Simulated assay, not measured.
Amino acid sequence: MHSFRTPDEVTLGVEDFGDVGAPLVVLIGSPTMLSWPDDLCDALARGGRHVVRYDLRDAGASTTVDPDAPAYTLRDLAADAAALAKGLDDRPAHLAGVGVGGMVAQVAALDHPDAFAALTLVGTRPVAPGPVDDDLPDHDAETRTRRFAVPMPKWTDRAAVAEYIAAGAEISGDDPAEARARAERIFDRTQGKARKFHMANQLGMVFAKLDCAPRWRERLPEIAVPTLVVHGRRDRFFPVGNGEALAREIPNARLLVLEDAATAIPAKAADEIADAMLAT
């Protein structure tokens, strides 16, 4: 694990897998790098790639100021991705984003096309957090109700946080054991932080307060690089219709639907996703 300093003086916490001289794959956190399973990073590295996963601002080991009032925009996060890719390799990189990180990836590919040679979008949608377009499926109402009914933990209590995240994962259709282990790792990386930072790291709540204007969906046809869209059939947070829309609106995009997956990337799908990414 090490840090990367952008030209805008932002510190990004990053982790490398594979040969640093191999073609670069940049994995955007959602919001932490641990949203990308180790098994997937290892599989990409075995496929001959230099894999770099990183934390977004106000998450993990990256610059943290105030997740309750972010002084940056979605466009700034997209610029971070481009700066990281250009700073690590002279060749355009394969950029991948999951969840809200997929929104960052779409904007980065549109605003910085010279930085990227391929794009992978996992479990995301073509509009910002908030009200969705009429033709896109929104969060499943019953699932949201059940998740909001789970009492919030004391965010500085490791065991309580892990149990809360595991309970939410089970409601969402994800593996609660994987979610609990990931929550514990995220917590351990932010020891000593105030409760709002733990909450931001676990839930990515900063996106509820982030300026994501202007819209980018109408620009998706501008994406000219090979694109892979991956979506879980059982995703109740961003239902699969969102991935289908991305695959329709990005020219020549390929859609991979994981029949047994929900919101998170399951470790058991690592090889399938890696193979699809390596072929993109």
Rank of each mutant, 00 (worst) to 15 (best):
S3C: 13
F4N: 05
R5I: 15
T6K: 06
D8P: 06
T11S: 14
T11C: 13
G13E: 02
D16T: 13
G18M: 08
G18H: 03
P23M: 10
S35M: 11
D38R: 11
D42C: 13
D42E: 15
L44N: 03
A45T: 04
R46E: 15
G47I: 05
G48Y: 03
V52I: 11
R53F: 07
Y54P: 01
R57F: 09
R57I: 10
D58C: 10
P70C: 12
Y72I: 09
Y72T: 02
R75S: 15
A81D: 01
A82P: 04
L84E: 01
K86N: 15
K86L: 14
L88C: 08
D89R: 13
L95N: 03
A96T: 03
G99Y: 03
A108F: 03
A108M: 04
D111P: 05
P113C: 11
P113N: 09
A115V: 01
L121I: 05
R125K: 15
A128S: 13
P131T: 12
P131Q: 12
P131I: 11
V132F: 12
D134Q: 13
D134K: 12
L136R: 03
D138K: 08
A141Y: 06
R147S: 13
F148Q: 14
A149I: 09
P151R: 06
T156M: 09
A160P: 00
I165F: 05
A167S: 13
E170W: 08
S172K: 08
G173Q: 04
D175Y: 02
A177N: 12
R182F: 06
R189Y: 10
Q191E: 15
F197L: 14
M199G: 10
M199D: 10
N201E: 08
G204K: 01
M205H: 14
L210K: 02
W216L: 06
L220E: 01
P221R: 09
E222A: 13
E222Y: 04
V225N: 03
P226V: 08
P226L: 05
L228Y: 01
G232H: 00
G232W: 02
G232M: 04
N242Y: 00
I250H: 01
D260G: 09
A264V: 09
A264E: 10
A269H: 04
A270Y: 02
A270W: 03
A274Q: 02
A279T: 13
A279Y: 00
